[in-house]
Design a protein around this nucleic acid. Structure first.
Lengths: 130, 130
DNA sequence: TCCTTGATCAACTAATAGGTTGATTACAAC
DNA sequence: GTTGTAATCAACCTATTAGTTGATCAAGGA
């Protein structure tokens, strides 16, 4: 499976798109299957035009795509872009967690209360995260 | 590990926070260890005040926290909030992928033998008509 | 053809976000 | 005390965004 490259600007748009509760609800709905604009607009109080704009934002973010079916324009979820987002997050989340575990292991072996704390920075990290 | 509840507004702020390339770069830097505002501001062309604002945004999003060390206010990554974001995304991404696989399996058995074109795009189109 | 439905386009408004510069707070070293 | 350093506060500017209403387009169905 070939994954297309995801640029910095792509991530900008993808994260910004999911920063809105209406758009996240649309994503949640689409995870159960494709839907038209009218179907997607039904649960919300806002106008159909506003929902159409939200879908455009999601489409430009690469999170959804649209096909054609007579007058209808069914919207589909693009799971690949969601995957690219988790890939970005996990890259740094896992790096940080691994660093914390390594730090815990070090402190495990040097439990010397009262000794000089030359590394206030590191010990602060430990206290905050454990 | 105790995971605190993450509200809708929390997700709003978290996703909006990662929608900015400067803030994503800050997260990437912090995954290698805590840093001060001056250290974080160094790679960027923008003013230190602007970086300070970015850190406030990340802090209000629950993605970083700050401790105290004399005049310095070292910034730490909060991996738990990153994990909450991937949890949200994966919930719907995996649901969609599972649905696609199930549809592919159906098309595998019902379509004429010869060419298997049960791609996700086509399967969603067919799914809509059911 | 005319009418209905699905969806977008266009223009406008109010609120928010990212950036700037200048002043101010908090702490430490001398 | 005075000075130097780390960081934030305050005021301001500009661009973007989410929402509105009204008009328009595109495709079927009578």
């Amino acid at each position: 499976m070939v994954l297309p490259p995801v640029s910095d600007a792509d991530l900008d748009r993808a994260f910004a798109a999911l920063a809105d509760p209406v758009r996240r609800a649309i994503i949640a709905r689409l995870s159960r299957g494709a839907a038209t604009v009218n179907e997607l607009a039904e649960p919300f109080e806002i106008s159909k035009q506003a929902v159409s704009k939200h879908i455009q934002v999601l489409e430009q973010a690469g999170l959804v795509s649209r096909t054609r079916d007579a007058q209808r324009r069914p919207v589909h979820l693009e799971a690949a872009r969601l995957e690219a987002m988790t890939a970005w997050i996990d890259r740094y989340r896992l790096a940080a967690e691994q660093r914390f575990r390594a730090l815990d292991a070090v402190l495990e072996h040097s439990t010397a209360p009262g000794s000089a704390r030359a590394t206030t920075q590191i010990s602060t990290d430990k206290e905050k995260q454990s």
